[in-house]
């Protein structure tokens, strides 16, 4: 039987506006703090208004079961997230979660985790879980510039190696994250690659390298409910030529997919 998911007003404990253009929230809900696993997300609606109307999906960055709290990191983007920019400690937001399939497969001994921008939000708990099991983790953070790197201290403290690629060279290598990844794959070597964010920039290399080792993606898609009622988040599964197309619901079977499980991720992976 499916798990029980919290759907209620939840209090915000702290709000940080860093880095610029992001809000970093701690929220109080002991059930989510206790039950959320790596790879899971919540749907959040900041205000009881009808415009914008839909809740927005955000990864659960981290949980603090003893305090009964969890953390979200939100990039201010369009109309819904712009409203969230004015949230203060003590405000209530409507949250449904934890949602999506928690990651439970840790049957490998090393991995490279590539993430760009708020992709960091999806990978922190996953990296911590991998480290608990003694897995060697190479973290590769990529961003436009050094001031856009999020969760830098937390993720670098967890990883065996933490490498940075910036578009402007303000920190680490001035290169695409995939160039740093390539060096690791061809140098030390890893069992698996996990990738979140970066979209079309990362895909050409990921598509190429998946012949050699398994590549996993944290997928994003437009979500209505985030739960499984609307079928809005569907993306096409890889099918053999001539076979009828089948879809997978990202909110239920994802957000993590093996790259060769889904069709044409260039179109859906943003």
């Amino acid at each position: 039987m499916p798990q029980t998911v919290t759907a209620s007003l939840i209090k915000i404990i702290t709000v940080l506006h860093e880095p610029d253009g992001y809000i970093d929230l701690i929220l109080y809900n002991p059930s989510i703090a206790k039950n959320a696993g790596p790879g899971q997300f919540v749907m959040m609606k900041a205000a009881p208004v009808n415009d914008p109307i839909l809740p927005r999906p955000f990864d659960i960055v981290d949980t603090f079961p003893r305090e009964g709290t969890f953390r979200l990191l939100i990039k201010i983007n369009g109309r819904g997230t712009a409203l969230m920019n004015s949230l203060k400690p003590g405000d209530d937001v409507f949250i449904t979660g934890p949602l999506g399939k928690p990651i439970t497969d840790f049957s490998f001994s090393s991995c490279a985790v590539l993430f760009r921008g708020c992709g960091a939000a999806a990978v922190l708990m996953f990296i911590r879980e991998a480290k608990k099991r003694g897995i060697t983790v190479y973290g590769i953070a990529s961003a436009a510039s050094s001031d856009k790197l999020v969760c830098k201290s937390e993720i670098s403290a967890l990883c065996d190696e933490y490498l940075v690629a910036t578009d402007d060279g303000s920190l680490g290598l001035q290169a695409l994250g995939t160039e740093v990844l390539k060096n690791i794959v061809e140098g030390e070597g890893v069992d698996r690659i996990y990738s979140c964010g970066g979209g079309p920039f990362y895909l050409p290399y990921l598509m190429e390298v998946q012949d050699r080792l398994p590549v996993y993606l944290f997928l994003e898609s437009y979500m209505g409910c985030g739960v499984g009622h609307c079928h809005g988040c569907a993306v096409p599964k890889k099918s053999r030529p001539g076979d009828p197309v089948q879809y997978t619901l990202v909110c239920q079977e994802g957000p993590l997919y093996k790259l060769d499980e889904v069709e044409d991720p260039c179109q859906i992976y943003q």
Partner: peptide, 23 residues
Amino acid sequence: RAGNPPPRIWETASGMLNAIGIP
């Protein structure tokens, strides 16, 4: 029925458009 290709939903002013395709 498999349903329609994505995007299947789009938020609009106080509403949403859907073309799910009744999977």
